[in-house]
Design a protein around this nucleic acid. Structure first.
Lengths: 143, 143
DNA sequence: TATTGTTATACTCTATAACTATA
DNA sequence: TATAGTTATAGAGTATAACAATA
């Protein structure tokens, strides 16, 4: 083991840190990690099951249960798609939108705080590089 | 939604990206995410259940099952601690060390590749900033 | 009394395979 | 035939609460 961390190790540890924050804030909003992730993805717009499972990187069958439980809790609803009777659109309820809004605000605040002590220039550079690295990642979280 | 991503969103998306890589490479090494994380943490040295659960951010009771399954698969062993008859030390077997070594090498390669197209100067700066941000994160992954 | 670790229990999450209904 | 989604099943992961053994 070296005394200075490489880029890969840094990214893994940042991931660990963000995951734990995600879980902690989720608990406070009564959301599991998987639920919070799904609601964040649906913040932008409603989606069909296939598209949503693709964005989240889950099998469609896994998503069925996730949506079932969230629908049971009143966070999302399935709606019929008139043009295609096989399909459904999953969208946020008012309660779901409210929960994800609180989650998003708290997580953003905590994450921004991680960078608060950095010089503004370093922070901006870090953000720019980050943006390049994640350019192709599905919009699982947005501003 | 803006056209440029903020720092918080960038960190969440990077987390999503790293998690998916973690899972993908884990599958190739026949390791679940939780197992890979545990083995990585034990790479440095053996640990007691309490310390290990602290490092991983899990309840001790959750760790019991995780270690049970890994021990069943021959990846780790529990060993008695002579000085304290309540305690056990969890350490990697040869098979566990081998699996985690392959996992570590592949993940590091894939993560480094994410930065490969960046100018060397930007990459170095990114790594330096990352190192500051994760300074207090437990050593769940090292070089 | 405090700490180490386990057990019992209950849920959530996830994948694979097989299925139905519609396009 | 291909696509959208579900069901059935099995296993992993996790937490809470209660417990035993040792310090």
């Amino acid at each position: 083991m070296q005394e200075t961390l490489g880029a890969a190790s840094g990214m893994v540890r940042l991931t660990f840190l963000v995951q734990n924050l995600y879980a902690e804030i989720g608990r406070g909003c009564d959301l599991t990690v998987a639920q919070a992730q799904m609601l964040c993805t649906l913040t932008d717009r409603p989606m069909g099951m296939a598209e949503l499972s693709g964005s989240l990187g889950l099998e469609r069958s896994s998503l069925t249960g996730l949506v079932d439980r969230a629908e049971h809790r009143g966070l999302v609803v399935r709606e019929a798609v008139p043009q295609d009777r096989r399909a459904v659109n999953v969208s946020l309820t008012a309660a779901g939108a409210d929960a994800v809004h609180r989650f998003h605000a708290q997580l953003t605040e905590r994450l921004d705080k991680l960078l608060a002590d950095l010089p503004a220039r370093e922070r901006d550079q870090f953000t720019r590089t980050l943006r390049r690295i994640v350019a192709d990642v599905p919009p699982v979280f947005a501003d």
